[in-house]
Amino acid sequence: MAFSVELLSEDNAYRWEEFNNRSHEGTPFHTLRWKNLLEEVFRLRLRYYLIFEDREVVGICPFVGRSIGLFQGLNSIPHSEFNNVILDDSFDPGCLDEVLSLFAEKYSFLLFNIYSTGGMDRIKHNNFVIEQTGNMVLNLKEHPPETIWSTFSRNMRYNIDIFEKRGFTIQEAHQPSDIKIFYHHYKENLTHIKGDILPFSFFQKLLELFPDEVRIATLTNGDVFAAGWLTLASPDRDTAYYQYLALNRDLPNRYTPTYPVYWDLVNWAWDNGYEKLSFGRQKLEPNNPRFKGKAKFGAEYVPIYTRLIPLSKSVHLAYWLKRKLSGVQTDHSPAAGQTSGAE
């Protein structure tokens, strides 16, 4: 077998799309439309690579170029809930080192996400654990709406039903004025929790590039806005992706609008035939209110593994010293599968 990597081009773009479409890990965030969204809105220097075994595509790697001083490297694409490297089921994890060496010809480091732990365990290259995070995913085949409802406490059901009793209804937003109201409260909510706010142009472009896959819904009573949420879902996929939440922070504390939001997401995904619903990226913090809220609706934590792979001795030494000086554990072993520390 012979491995090679190719930078995405007009000549091989169709092969990228074909691989993403057939892979069980493929997502809208791996499509070339999403790449165009990131490039046009954020002017990013994206570097998308295909991995070939002989002449068959066995992996796709969405990266963004990153420079640290004189060192050139690749990082995971930002603003994307699913930005992981995707490998074919036939790919032998023991060959990852061979593939990494191909990137070493041009880059000094790689930072990427992957779902499979088996691949990481087989890497002989020095590597550092960067972050412990994952996605909260609901398996609707195992937890249909009626099963989830039966697990709710009386208080949970009250917090969902109170909105309907007070005259709130859920409607899909299509008019530009409705989208602007959604964005206004999205921005206020992110400001309140000190989150990263995406520009309005991002949502405009998202609606333009994914017209049949974006659903924006709002919970309102006349002019009173309680919440809004955006779902990205392809009719030919089995997973729906809940993405962006807008909240009216001026509502009285007796209201918990995230509960009817989640309940609508569950029922909408179920009614439209989706097998899974992703509630988005989340750190493994069982006591975190957002983690607990999603778990109440049946979502389970699916870990994603983030690794920094130094491809040059200079980067390895520099990063090791940085972690050492900052007090982060930096124990290192040259044996296969060992990492140089964990945060």
Rank of each mutant, 00 (worst) to 15 (best):
M1P: 12
S4R: 15
S4E: 14
L8W: 14
L8Q: 03
D11S: 15
N12K: 11
Y14I: 01
Y14Q: 10
R15H: 05
E17H: 03
E17T: 02
E18A: 11
F19A: 01
S23P: 03
H24P: 04
H24I: 02
H30C: 06
L38I: 01
E39A: 08
E39N: 09
Y48A: 00
E53C: 05
V57N: 13
P62V: 03
G65N: 08
R66I: 02
G69E: 12
F71K: 06
L74Y: 11
N75Y: 15
P78D: 07
H79I: 02
N84P: 01
V85S: 04
D88A: 13
D89A: 13
S90C: 10
S90Q: 14
G94K: 08
D97W: 02
V99K: 02
L100F: 11
F103V: 02
F103H: 02
K106C: 11
S108N: 10
F109P: 00
F112K: 02
F112E: 10
I114C: 06
S116N: 11
T117C: 14
G118A: 11
I123G: 02
K124E: 15
N127I: 07
F128H: 09
F128I: 09
V129A: 13
I130L: 15
E131G: 03
G134L: 08
G134P: 04
N135Y: 08
V137N: 04
L140F: 05
K141G: 11
H143C: 08
W149C: 04
F152Y: 12
F152I: 01
R154G: 14
M156V: 10
D161W: 03
I162H: 02
R166Y: 09
G167H: 03
F168G: 00
F168E: 04
I170D: 02
Q171C: 06
I181G: 00
Y183H: 05
Y183G: 03
H185L: 01
Y186G: 01
K187P: 00
E188S: 04
L190F: 14
H192N: 10
I193R: 09
I193Q: 12
K194E: 14
K194I: 01
F200A: 10
F200L: 15
F202R: 03
L207W: 09
D212N: 13
E213P: 01
V214T: 10
V214H: 07
I216E: 04
T218N: 05
T218F: 12
V224K: 10
V224H: 08
W229D: 03
L232Y: 05
D236R: 09
R237V: 00
L247C: 05
L247Y: 12
N248V: 05
R249C: 08
D250P: 00
L251I: 05
R254F: 11
Y255F: 14
T256M: 11
T256R: 12
P257S: 04
P257Q: 07
T258G: 01
T258C: 04
Y259P: 02
P260R: 05
V261D: 06
Y262Q: 12
Y262P: 00
L265R: 07
W268P: 00
A269R: 12
N272K: 15
K276E: 14
L277V: 02
R281N: 05
K283I: 07
P286L: 08
K294S: 07
A295W: 11
A295G: 04
F297I: 04
E300V: 12
Y301G: 00
V302C: 06
R307F: 08
I309D: 09
P310Q: 07
S314D: 15
H316F: 15
A318L: 14
W320R: 07
L325F: 12
T330N: 15
D331S: 15
G337M: 08
G337T: 11
S340N: 15
